[in-house]
Nucleic acid binder design. Sequence first.
DNA 1: GCCGACTGACTGACCGGTCAATCGATCAAA
DNA 2: TTTGATCGATTGACCGGTCAGTCAGTCGGC
Lengths: 200, 200
Amino acid sequence: MARAETAAIDKRRLILDAAVRVFARQGFHTCRVSDIADEAGVAYGLVYHYFSSKDEILDTLFLERWNVMLAAIAEADASQLQARDKLRAIAGFIIDSYRHDPELMKVIIVEVTRAANTFGRTHLATIRDAYAQIAGIVARAQAEGVFRTEITPEFAALAFYGAVEQVLTGWIFDSVPVDDEELERSKTLIVETICRGLEL
Amino acid sequence: MARAETAAIDKRRLILDAAVRVFARQGFHTCRVSDIADEAGVAYGLVYHYFSSKDEILDTLFLERWNVMLAAIAEADASQLQARDKLRAIAGFIIDSYRHDPELMKVIIVEVTRAANTFGRTHLATIRDAYAQIAGIVARAQAEGVFRTEITPEFAALAFYGAVEQVLTGWIFDSVPVDDEELERSKTLIVETICRGLEL
DNA sequence: GCCGACTGACTGACCGGTCAATCGATCAAA
DNA sequence: TTTGATCGATTGACCGGTCAGTCAGTCGGC
């Protein structure tokens, strides 16, 4: 029983991991469910044993990762760091996520976050949770007199997240892979560029 | 002859304009070519008389508009303005484009610029022309000692464009329409946020 | 009567999802 | 220990709907 249970969980995971590779390579709309099954080394029908639709696979991948990110943002927010360092932690988390699993980040950004007409629409509220939390950090920094109040928190959050995502998108479609050093440098660059505009 | 020619050009334009509305409403992948023909009040086959494929319609819409934007950026670049005001002009142009035709901007951003796996891929080089030109403005400002050199021009361009696009995306999917005043305020906000981080 | 704009029914490929059948682990009864 | 009943995991052929693109033909100006 334990053996079978583990095997079952593994197969589900196997399909999810295969889907990441296939979505990253071919894109969600362009790939066929059979491509995922083939990549996972699994029969076509098994995909539908674990997931009710092709969409549900992408939903699962997105929510798994986005919830981790929301938790990371909440943790940064709850910490005793300076506002600038909270934002640095968030940018750092996103960039480290890319370092750790670029294919997954590509899928999430390209197929969900930036695919506002399809999955982005479905998950709009969840995506906006992240913006709202970042806006909260900015608002608190403004109340404490660390950030100036000319720029609305919501706007600051969009600009901050937009800058991070655009940089990631640049990497995602670069032919040359990025080295760790540039990843690290970018964390500082983002915070330097955006926070300096927000601080007093 | 002149009559017929004009009529022909009109029909082509009619189809393009209808396509903007349909793409904005339903999304490129979700709509059918017949939807475009119906919206334009034209026979299905006529769409294929003027365009060789569904893709070509979107390509045309994108290139038409993007080339105008590239020209606007080049004009700002060539002007005698301060770097900050050049960037302001660019942000202003993009925001005014949205004001003038929000549906077209929605289509371009959602279906091309942010659709990195489909049309974004095809037009990647064209899209990056814009980033490169913005980077050029930043680089010149750095050489003149107006902007600090810690941040690479390429990075600054991504952050700038990313912030603008993210703000537009926010409007595009907001249920509440944006009033002119907020549009104007946003131009200043973007420049204030980003340029302040770039200036010495 | 020629030429090009225009029409819209049709087709062929494609693909998401279904389902009937098989496999194999487990366990209780013989 | 063997048998066979049970049930979830697994398989992949197949179905049905959708739609981009074709094409044979009509219409109308010159």
